[in-house]
C-alpha cells in the first residue's frame, strides 16, 4: 500500500482525529503532521498488529502531543467555513449542526479521554482499544464509562 492509498483509506479517521484535537486554525497543520508520521512510519510497519490499529496509534499519538503554532493563527479561515462541508438542505444542515455539537462536546473532554471516547465512537472493540492505548481491557471499560457519563452531561438537551 502506498501513502496516497493509505491516506485515502484512513482519511475519515484522520479527519475526525483532527476535528477532535485541533482548533479551527491548525486543522491543516495537524492533518499534515499525521500524514507525514504515517508516511514515515509505514516504511517500518512490520505487520505485528492490524494496519488500522497501527494507523490509529500513530495518528492519536501525534494528535495527543501536538502543539499548536500560535503565530499561524492569523490570516486563516476558520474550520467552520473551510473544512466542514456545506450542507445542501435544511435537514442536512441540521444534522451537520448536531454532528458539530457532538464534536464540540468530545473536544471538551480531557485529551486522553478524547482518544478513548473517539475509539469507542468508532465502534472499536475493547481489545483493540486496549491495544491502541496500552490500557488493560477492564481499564478501558472503566475509562469509557466515565467519559460517556461526562459526554452525556455535556450534551444534555443539545442533540
Amino acid at each position: 500500500m502506498d501513502i496516497n492509498q493509505l491516506i485515502q483509506e484512513y482519511h475519515p479517521m484522520i479527519y475526525k482525529i483532527c476535528r477532535v484535537y485541533s482548533d479551527e486554525y491548525d486543522f491543516d497543520d495537524l492533518y499534515q503532521e499525521i500524514s507525514i508520521n504515517l508516511w514515515k512510519g509505514l516504511k517500518r510497519y512490520e505487520g505485528k498488529s492490524k494496519l488500522s490499529t497501527w494507523a490509529y496509534r500513530v495518528a492519536l499519538n501525534t494528535a495527543l502531543t501536538y502543539q499548536r503554532n500560535n503565530s499561524k493563527h492569523r490570516n486563516k479561515t476558520p474550520l467552520s467555513e473551510s473544512m466542514v462541508p456545506a450542507s445542501s438542505s435544511d435537514e442536512a444542515a441540521e444534522k451537520e449542526q448536531r454532528v458539530q455539537r457532538l464534536f464540540d462536546a468530545v473536544r471538551q473532554l480531557e485529551k486522553v479521554d478524547r482518544s478513548v471516547m473517539l475509539l469507542y465512537l468508532e465502534e472499536k472493540k475493547y481489545d483493540e482499544i486496549a491495544e491502541i492505548t496500552g490500557l488493560s481491557a477492564s481499564n478501558v471499560g472503566v475509562k469509557i464509562s466515565r467519559a460517556k457519563k461526562q459526554l452525556r452531561k455535556l450534551l444534555e438537551g443539545q442533540i
Binding site: 517500518r44 496509534r57 499519538n61 482518544s115 491495544e131
Partner: peptide, 13 residues
C-alpha cells in the same frame, strides 16, 4: 525519536 509515535499511547507517552 524516529519511532516516538509508534507503539501504544502509553508506550509513546
Amino acid at each position: 525519536i524516529r519511532q516516538i509515535h509508534e507503539g501504544s499511547i502509553i508506550e509513546s507517552l
